[in-house]
């Protein structure tokens, strides 16, 4: 039993995969908490998909697709925020435009490249097993940068996310924070691309924090629980992938999804199971008029 726990880590490629996936998923878990509270999930999805354009350009020029994705994602996130502020469009409309436009551009560029389908698949689904130590270090560096940024501006991010008007009224540079958070989301998305690829990046960004909101009450607790869920999902997902001979990224996502379903059933505060147990509805009614969603 112990042997089978250690065996996968005897391989260098599994060590690198573990390091890269852990760091990426922890960054996602923390930034994702703000993403789900601000309803920015679609933005993460859009940034991931539209990054295909930047990756394709990098691929075309023979550069590292990571930098290509980053060079696209950060301006795209700023663009989404800018368009929605200036053009008086709803945020989801602005996101949709950038999402589809960037993805289409990426596909057109990739279709000019040799062996289109396999390469496109590689970008869409990522492969953490192919991570070199250099890439793992890059992923780790970016992830630590994201975490440091959240730690440094925690109270500004919290206040602005909670009540932007009030934050502005008390002198917090709200406009700056409102551009900063999407940039954080963009960097985090790019960091996670290597692990799970464009298509599944949203799962790392959303599923652990969503699970955490079912388990913890206050924001710091939710972040901690989100990180815990992400870490356990990555480790369990890697082992599942190793022993069941399954693709790695999707395995991690499936484990995280499993945790979410468990939390949905057994959450101490909001779980279906708990709700069934206290069948008399009077107790829930006392929670307050506006408490219901």
């Amino acid at each position: 039993m112990l042997d089978s726990l250690w065996e996968p880590l005897g391989y260098a490629f599994m060590q690198r995969a573990l390091v890269a996936a852990l760091l990426a998923s922890v960054a996602c878990a923390v930034v994702g908490t703000f993403v789900i509270l601000r309803g920015m999930a679609f933005m993460g999805e859009a940034i991931g998909h539209s990054s295909l354009a930047g990756m394709a350009v990098a691929y075309f020029l023979g550069g590292n697709v990571f930098w290509g994705a980053l060079a696209w994602a950060v301006p795209a996130s700023l663009g989404i925020t800018f368009i929605s502020r200036r053009a008086k469009l709803r945020l989801d409309t602005a996101i949709g435009i950038i999402f589809a436009g960037g993805f289409a551009l990426g596909i057109i560029l990739m279709s000019q490249v040799n062996n289109y389908t396999a390469d496109l698949f590689g970008l869409l689904f990522g492969n953490v097993l192919a991570a070199s130590w250099g890439e793992a270090a890059l992923t780790g560096g970016m992830a630590l940068g994201v975490l440091a940024a959240v730690a440094a501006f925690y109270k500004e991010l919290l206040f602005t996310a909670y009540d932007a008007d009030m934050a502005a009224a008390s002198g917090i540079p709200v406009r700056l924070v409102q551009y900063f958070l999407p940039v954080l989301v963009a960097v985090t998305t790019v960091v996670a691309l290597k692990t799970v690829g464009i298509v599944l990046v949203l799962a790392l960004l959303v599923t652990p924090p969503a699970t955490a909101t079912l388990l913890a009450r206050r924001l710091p607790g939710i972040m901690a629980a989100s990180v815990a869920v992400a870490v356990v999902s990555v480790v369990a997902g890697l082992y599942l992938s190793f022993y069941a001979d399954l693709p790695t990224g999707p395995s991690i996502v499936m484990v995280a999804t499993g945790f979410f379903l468990l939390a949905l059933l057994f959450s101490p505060s909001k779980g279906v199971w708990r709700r069934l147990q206290r069948s008399p509805p009077t107790e829930t009614a006392a929670a307050g008029s506006g408490a219901d969603r």
């Binding site: 996310a161 009540d163 008007d165 909101t213 009450r217 206050r218 924001l219 506006g290 969603r293």
Partner: peptide, 12 residues
């Protein structure tokens, strides 16, 4: 104008 579902306490 306040998000009452936000996970903060009265103290926060």
């Amino acid at each position: 104008r306040v998000d009452w579902d936000f996970p903060v306490t009265v103290d926060d």
